Amino acid sequence: MLGLSPTMLPKVVAAAEKASLPVVVWLHGHECTGCDESFIRSQSPLASDVVLNMIALEYSDTLAAAAGAPFEHHLKEVREKYAGKYLLAVEGGVPMAEGGIYCMVGGRPFATALKEAAQGAAAVIEYGSCAAWGGIQAAKPNPTQSLSVSEVISGKPIVKVPGCPPVPEVMTGVIMHYALFGALPPLDSQGRPKQFFGNRIHDTCYRRPFFDSGMFAEKFDDAGAKAGWCLYKVGCRGPETYNSCGNLRWWNGLSYPIQSGHGCIGCSSNNFWDMDPFYERLPNIPIPGTVANADKVGAVVAGAAAAAVAVHGALSVVQKNKGKKLEQTNSVRGPEA
């Protein structure tokens, strides 16, 4: 569930036996609450186990029973009491246009609330592509001037958990890693946790053998699509998108977009919303040692098949000629030979 090697089990057990629970403050900015919806559907671990047993969720204006002025006052008390110790989770982009009036929380711009909460945070988790990259509201021409969290705050350890929304178990896995070890997981060059964003969708896709064989759906309703062939030609961005959809999937491993027949749109990639059209194939596909498109891959496969047929045919001719010569030799020498 944490994406860790089995050799880490003793350390996980030791960490789980500690008494104190890390305090978490969860803010919501310019977003659709889809990340919350994803989080509460985590099956391994269950979101309820994380919230009730692994962390002390002191503030979340979506999941909390409290509301209004008393709840906002509680947030202020938490920031002061646990200054420098709490984990700040942020969902949503940060609109900066016109003083941040396009996203107000508790009567104040979200940007203001974010800066205040980040000041005393030990670390920050950017949940979802809105927090990590600015979100679909940051698509051109970005009228609200929406930014990612890391473009507004600095000087704090930050982990990006992009996705629209992220995979549920990725969300719970990251916060559990912090709860167990008191630190963010190892990150890649873009600030994403390596154990969940170390592979491309293309690397873990069950349709990969069809790509390697040059077998592609040309349209969503053709025979190839119905047979479950590779969706690269109809716009799948799996070859350039890093995420865990292919191996973790959704709803306790039930399915994910490619399995349901739709190509990956790269929702965990920066600026994916401006990379339209979604249904035209990528111009190139990286292959070890070369770059080739789907036509070339298909041609190579077809050429290899043709070459194999030709070789088989040639060998058959040679074998047939050998048989004829042997018959001629036997007829000349007579049956006693």
Rank of each mutant, 00 (worst) to 15 (best):
A56T: 09
L57T: 03
V13N: 08
G214D: 06
A83M: 13
L147D: 07
L57P: 04
N247C: 14
K76Q: 13
L4S: 05
K11C: 13
L254F: 15
E151S: 09
A302V: 05
S148H: 04
N243G: 12
A117I: 00
V317L: 09
R237E: 08
A123Q: 02
Y242W: 11
L57M: 08
P186M: 05
G29C: 03
G68S: 06
V105A: 06
S129C: 10
G238L: 06
A97G: 12
E336W: 14
S148D: 02
V167Q: 02
A121G: 00
M54G: 08
L63T: 10
E327T: 14
W250H: 09
L63N: 07
W251D: 15
E336I: 13
Y279C: 12
L87T: 06
H312Y: 14
S129I: 01
Q119T: 11
E327I: 13
G266F: 04
S255Q: 13
P6Q: 04
N321L: 13
A121M: 00
A19G: 09
L87R: 00
F272A: 05
T7D: 14
M171N: 07
K325G: 12
V50F: 06
D212C: 12
V311K: 08
C267F: 01
A292E: 07
E218D: 13
C264P: 06
E151Y: 06
L75E: 04
S44Q: 14
L27Y: 04
P168N: 05
K85L: 12
P162C: 00
A314P: 11
Y59M: 05
M171I: 15
L326F: 15
P143E: 09
S148Q: 04
K156N: 03
P168R: 05
Y127C: 05
L147W: 11
T241E: 01
F211K: 08
V297P: 06
W26T: 00
S269E: 13
K320S: 15
R192E: 00
F71R: 10
F210T: 03
V174Q: 01
I258Q: 02
T33C: 03
S213L: 13
L75F: 06
V174N: 00
A67G: 12
A89M: 12
E169S: 04
G228W: 05
A223K: 09
V13S: 05
L2N: 01
Q119H: 13
S150H: 09
F196P: 03
T329D: 14
S331A: 13
Q119V: 12
T172C: 04
K194R: 09
M96F: 11
L180D: 01
P10S: 04
Q328I: 15
G228C: 08
D61E: 13
C164T: 05
I40S: 02
K320L: 15
V317T: 10
V50G: 03
Q119N: 12
G3S: 01
E31F: 05
D276Y: 15
L88T: 05
S154L: 12
W229Y: 12
V311D: 10
G198M: 06
E37K: 11
S129L: 03
Y82E: 06
C130R: 03
L315Q: 11
N284R: 14
P186K: 03
